[in-house]
């Protein structure tokens, strides 16, 4: 039915070339992510400069313990993700699967904690439309949460493939690229946490 060169029937490609292309492509994609959040960070600084007391007051309503807990959770997940990449490069199947599963678990923890943070706030009537601080708060953490969800599907896909033994010393690009994305999700939170919760 189809000839080579359609979506489901690609030309053969050189795996090394494809790996290098994908890696560069992912780095460029990460740059677009930084710019995407860059707009929100710019808005944060502008509004904090104009309304310092609104931001102080808003920040005092945030639960520092839960925010800190989530920061730790993400840092550990970044660590297990790095271990997964290392395992893939060395062809250690069990270690790869284990570390991907741990990363996925931590990501789930992050979402659960987030739910415990947002839920009471919303039920107390602190909504995105309360004031400009909470507009910034819900927008940044919400967009970040969306990225956690995308990262989780990415890692889930990697896990499913790792269980089939798809990754080994000669083919670890997918895990590496997934790792790059996950580290970015982590780094964005590392900036969000002090800006929103601590200062």
């Amino acid at each position: 039915m189809s000839e080579p060169g359609t979506f489901f029937h690609l030309h053969e490609e050189d795996p090394v070339e494809a790996y290098e292309n994908f890696k560069l492509g992912m780095w460029i994609f990460l740059a677009t992510e930084v710019l995407l959040f860059g707009g929100l960070f710019a808005a944060y600084f502008i509004f904090k400069f104009i309304w310092p007391t609104v931001f102080e007051d808003g920040s005092s309503h945030l639960n520092k313990f839960m925010g800190g807990l989530n920061t730790l959770v993400l840092i550990f997940s970044s660590f297990s993700m790095a271990m997964a990449v290392d395992a893939a490069q060395r062809g250690q199947q069990k270690k790869l699967v284990r570390n991907l599963a741990i990363t996925l678990f931590f990501a789930l923890c992050f979402i659960v904690v987030k739910g415990f943070e947002w839920g009471p706030k919303l039920s107390h009537g602190i909504t995105p439309g309360s004031d400009v601080f909470f507009s910034v708060y819900y927008m940044t953490t919400g967009l970040h949460l969306l990225h956690v969800l995308v990262g989780m599907s990415f890692i889930g896909l990697l896990l499913a493939r790792a269980l089939k033994g798809r990754y080994h010393e000669e083919n670890f690009g997918g895990v590496e690229i997934g790792g790059l994305y996950w580290h970015l999700v982590d780094i964005i939170w590392i900036f969000l946490f002090p800006l929103l919760y601590l200062i």
């Binding site: 740059a31 677009t32 860059g38 439309g129 910034v136």
Partner: peptide, 23 residues
């Protein structure tokens, strides 16, 4: 480098209209 910024801007506009955020 430029398109993501309009992306977030348009997203904010949608949120502004549908959830009443205040950017």
């Amino acid at each position: 480098l430029a398109t993501p910024v309009v992306g977030i801007t348009l997203l904010l506009l949608i949120m502004e209209r549908s959830f009443g955020i205040g950017f």
